[in-house]
Design a protein around this nucleic acid. Structure first.
Length: 287
DNA sequence: CGACTTTGACCTGCGC
DNA sequence: GCGCAGGTCAAAGTCG
């Protein structure tokens, strides 16, 4: 299956930081989703990735790049739903935006012995003060495949029809019993070829499986790159691990990042043990 | 037989 | 307070 990737290039002159070429629909959809993280608050809670990278990366969906959407763009139908979701994510008090990065670890519930325990803990949270939200990270990928391989194994635990969208949203959970990472997958109602994947949480383990028909090395490369990004700007990229196949990382807002950092993320690091080691922190690995 | 998906019901938060 | 929508649960079904 061939992946069609919209050409996305840094917009040297544009205020938005990015310019699409080649796929107007995708551009529109993505642009409309920009406000998902809009407002400039809630750093570290959600970010966006866009499909980009060298051709032939995989036969299934190719994930890419991590990037945060530029601020304040007009929304559209699919974006409205997504934006609403984003608003929900930011339901925490505004003060939280300042220490979003630090809250990543502090908000993370203690690891439970199994999935049930995690669920129980979650339920407890529900009945308690407020459900704890783990940092989220969203990707938009142009793919015919809904569930994109990212090197991890996922178990689907729910599917819901989404308002303002003809496509249902699927809910997945990492099959690793100690891992509480979740992801949501839905298609853009404006451009059905675009898959919106939202990760929540952080993997506490290495990739545990070989992607069906894919190369886990690509996933590992993406993970490594994502981690690089997270390490470079943790306040912007809180969740380091759960990112799928993609070779290149791009950031849409150069003005928010040091040039050196941009250079690092644009150049995809090679896959090696050192980088893999960065995917899961030593502390995490020792769990 | 275990792992995974499907699907309807239920719970919770939020806006009106 | 009510209704809606998102998120999750869990039983049943499917597949390898």
């Amino acid at each position: 299956m061939e992946e069609e990737r919209p050409a996305l290039e840094p917009d040297a002159s544009g205020a938005s930081g990015w310019a699409f070429s080649g796929d107007g629909a995708a551009a529109a959809a993505i642009a409309s989703l920009e406000d998902l993280c809009g407002g400039g608050d809630g750093e570290g809670e959600i970010g966006w990735g866009l499909p980009l990278g060298p051709p032939g990366v995989g036969e299934e969906g190719v994930f890419p790049p991590l990037l945060r959407a530029p601020e304040s763009s007009p929304g559209s139908a699919p974006a409205a739903a997504a934006a609403k979701a984003a608003r929900e994510e930011r339901s925490d008090p505004p003060a939280a935006s300042g220490d979003a990065a630090s809250s990543v670890s502090s908000e993370e519930p203690p690891p439970e012995s199994d999935d049930k325990a995690a669920d129980t803990a979650n339920k407890t949270c529900k009945k308690g003060i407020k459900r704890t939200r783990q940092p989220r990270f969203a990707f938009m990928t142009k793919s015919e495949v809904d569930h994109l391989e990212d090197g991890y194994r996922w178990r689907k635990y729910g599917q819901k029809a989404v308002k303002n969208s003809p496509f249902p949203r699927s809910y997945y959970r990492c099959t690793n019993s100690k891992c509480t990472v979740k992801k949501r997958v839905e298609r853009s109602s404006e451009d059905p070829s675009i898959v919106i994947t939202t990760y929540e949480g952080q993997h506490c383990h290495h990739t545990v499986s070989y992607p069906r028909g894919g190369s886990h090395l690509h996933a590992a490369a993406a993970l490594a790159a994502a981690q690089q990004l997270a390490l470079s700007a943790p306040q912007l990229y809180a969740p380091p691990s759960p990112f799928p196949q993609s070779p290149s990382l791009i950031h849409p807002q150069q003005q928010q990042r040091p040039p050196a950092l941009l250079d690092r993320t644009l150049a995809l690091p090679a896959v090696d043990e050192g980088l893999l080691g960065d995917v899961v922190s030593p502390a995490t690995r020792n769990r």
